[in-house]
């Protein structure tokens, strides 16, 4: 493979990887607060993209569409936690898997009714004039995705480390009983984790929409890949999740170049199975 095309695959790999990283963060946050793997996480990505597209359609301002999409989906995440997970009386994994899968399917169905089966596009955040970089082209949207992901990551880290609420969330994850003793409300933290994860998913969906279009059934694939990224990172740290996302994105992109594009999605799941079977604790040991 020549250098230019290698660079091209690297660019698209890192872009997709950044998206997977955002979704992976959602998995990690919810897992930390509840030990639940939320199968509906991918649908938040889809909803984020489609909501933003609809808002933009009525009121063509990208910042408004972005914020509006994130807020709407965050509300969906909160409702999902309150209505579908809070009332569960026997919270064993089998029950929770089926409920979150049910939630995913439900949201997908609703999206199909609301938006139909066609794919929608969102304009790029700052035009489509490509940069040229050593024979490869780099779209401004690629930069937006990578830049905003980095920004979100920084913001999240400072939230968890510096703010009182963030510290409380981490305390809950480490030791729920002790957290309760010092007056932290576990149920509020769980709710917050779902809200945060939904917001992250929505953001990922809106960022990627200009590159891949938004369509009602995009959630399953993208959600699974986000999970794959989270597992690669060991489900432990946000850093691991981000690294997992980038590794997955690049691996997938390179494989597309080497094999064929039809099997592109299979690569991600092949990696997922490989990691689950060989090293379920993740490539990067889950640390603090």
């Amino acid at each position: 493979m020549e250098l230019a095309s290698l660079l091209q695959y690297l660019i698209s790999g890192l872009t997709n990887g950044a998206i997977y990283a955002l979704i992976a963060l959602g998995f990690v946050i919810i897992y930390h607060a509840t030990t639940i793997i939320n199968f509906a996480q991918g649908e938040m990505v889809m909803l984020g993209a489609l909501c933003a597209i609809s808002i933009y359609h009525h009121y063509p301002s990208l910042p408004v569409a972005f914020v509006g999409g994130v807020v709407l989906v965050t509300i969906v995440g909160i409702l999902f936690e309150r209505l579908a997970l809070r009332p569960v009386r026997d919270p064993n994994p089998l029950t929770l898997i089926i409920i979150t899968v049910g939630g995913a399917v439900f949201l997908k169905g609703v999206a199909m009714i609301l938006w139909g089966k066609e794919a929608y596009s969102l304009p790029s955040f700052s035009g489509d004039t490509p940069f040229h970089l050593g024979g490869a082209t780099l779209l401004p949207q690629n930069l937006w995705v990578m830049g905003l992901t980095a920004l979100v990551l920084l913001a999240l880290e400072s939230f968890f480390r510096l703010t009182l609420t963030g510290k409380a969330m981490r305390a809950c994850a480490y030791n729920p009983r002790a957290a309760r003793l010092v007056g932290i409300s576990q149920s509020r933290m769980v709710l917050l984790s779902f809200a945060l994860a939904a917001a992250l998913g929505a953001g990922a969906g809106i960022l990627i929409a200009p590159l891949t279009l938004g369509v009602y059934d995009m959630g399953t694939m993208v959600g699974l890949k986000g999970f794959c990224a989270a597992i690669l990172g060991g489900l432990g740290s946000s850093f691991g999740g981000v690294l997992g996302g980038l590794i997955l994105g690049v691996a997938e992109s390179l494989a597309t170049g080497l094999i064929s594009s039809g099997y592109r999605d299979a690569v991600a799941f092949f990696i997922l199975l490989l990691v689950l079977f060989i090293r379920p604790q993740g490539l990067i040991r889950g640390g603090s």
């Binding site: 579908a84 089926i98 899968v101 049910g102 995913a104 399917v105 169905g109």
Partner: peptide, 9 residues
């Protein structure tokens, strides 16, 4: 699809 989701949940 919606009905499946509702039944499951």
């Amino acid at each position: 699809v919606i009905i499946f989701g509702v039944i499951l949940m």
